[in-house]
Amino acid sequence: MSPLVSPEHLTSASQRADEAVGRRNRGATTAGRGSGSGTRAGGGPATERGTRGVLGTPGGRAVVGLLLPVVLVIAWWAATAAGLFSPVQLPSPASVISAGIDLAADGSLWHHIAISVQRVLLGFAIGGVLGLVIGSILGLSTWADAVLAPLVGAIRAVPSLAWVPLLILWMGIGEDSKITLVAIGAFFPIFTNVYAALKHVDPHLVEAGRAFGYHGLRLLRTVQLPAVVPSVFSGLRLALAQAWLFLVAAELIASSMGLGWLLSDSQNNGRTDRLILAIILLAVIGKLTDAILGLVEQRAIRRWS
């Protein structure tokens, strides 16, 4: 008696069942992909692309960056208009603008700004060059590191105001003492970054440079410094900010011109409007110089990194 179902029929039925399951699984996968792409279209990545579109241009980032300062100015105006503070404690934005116009009219404001910018640029240049040179020496030489690193670390811990009496005693109250103090402030950030970065340069990269015949200063200039360009510019930007801090310390104590002196003089004369004006100018000019250095950094990274 022949079987009711033959093995061939069982095999073909099994194959058809497997194909049906496969088609169902592929359909579910396609549906899942479709729903996933719909989620992306309405949610995360599309929104992220939109956000990147706004922040991907310098103009967009500038507009977004101005939002919080504008909100703070509005809150400042509202607080003074409501009488929450006396004019001595916090003058209105209009009073500060008026103080700036008065100082600009007699030319003293521009003189204060020019003197402070000149001191910062000179001190930053001197401190930056010294930090780059000494950081390179200690980062590349084991003997120099062992001899000089403890002394440099100890000097770095000295507060900025502690240098003022000694510099005045040695150099007087002229420009030399102020520029030297700014140079001290600018020296340590760039020194620290260059020193640490050169310690961690890829040794294979150094060996490849030596294989091409580079040694000493040529190896440093051609291989090692380009390898640490991001760290160098991070140090430079920190050094620039530190230079502005040390400038104010110098001008608060021994100066007759500059934005730091304007701060001190305004405090002594009860001119809070001019005091706040000096603070705002320091913030704005400091940000502008940092932005300029940031543009230089971008070009340097594109060229050497």
Rank of each mutant, 00 (worst) to 15 (best):
L66H: 05
L151G: 12
L67R: 03
A227Y: 02
V120R: 05
H200P: 07
V194K: 04
R271E: 09
A227T: 09
R16A: 15
A291S: 13
N193T: 09
G65R: 11
A82Y: 03
V117W: 00
I168R: 07
T30Q: 11
G100M: 05
L288S: 10
A82D: 10
L205Q: 12
V201T: 07
R40V: 12
G34W: 05
L281V: 06
F124D: 03
S12D: 05
W304Q: 11
W76F: 09
E48T: 14
L236F: 04
I74D: 01
R23G: 06
N25K: 12
V152T: 12
N269Y: 08
L167V: 04
S95P: 07
I276H: 08
A211C: 08
R49F: 06
L90K: 09
G131E: 02
S234V: 08
A62D: 02
F191P: 01
K178V: 03
V284W: 07
V296Q: 09
I173N: 10
A82T: 15
R119P: 04
A243W: 01
I137R: 01
V223R: 11
I97P: 04
L138N: 12
T289C: 12
S12N: 02
T192D: 14
G60V: 06
I179W: 00
Y214L: 15
Q267I: 14
I279K: 01
V129Q: 11
R299Q: 14
L259R: 02
P165F: 00
A146Q: 14
H215E: 14
V206A: 03
G83F: 07
V63K: 00
R271D: 09
G42R: 13
L161R: 14
G174W: 00
G50W: 11
G213T: 03
V129H: 11
A144H: 08
V133K: 00
V54R: 06
E175I: 09
L282K: 07
Y195H: 09
T192V: 15
L245D: 15
G209E: 03
R218Y: 06
A154F: 00
W143K: 12
A46P: 06
A46K: 01
L198P: 01
S234H: 11
A249R: 12
E175F: 00
I301S: 10
I115R: 08
L217N: 00
S35V: 12
V71K: 01
R271Y: 10
L10N: 02
V71R: 03
R61A: 01
V182Y: 00
E19Y: 06
T30L: 12
G34I: 10
A99N: 06
L205P: 01
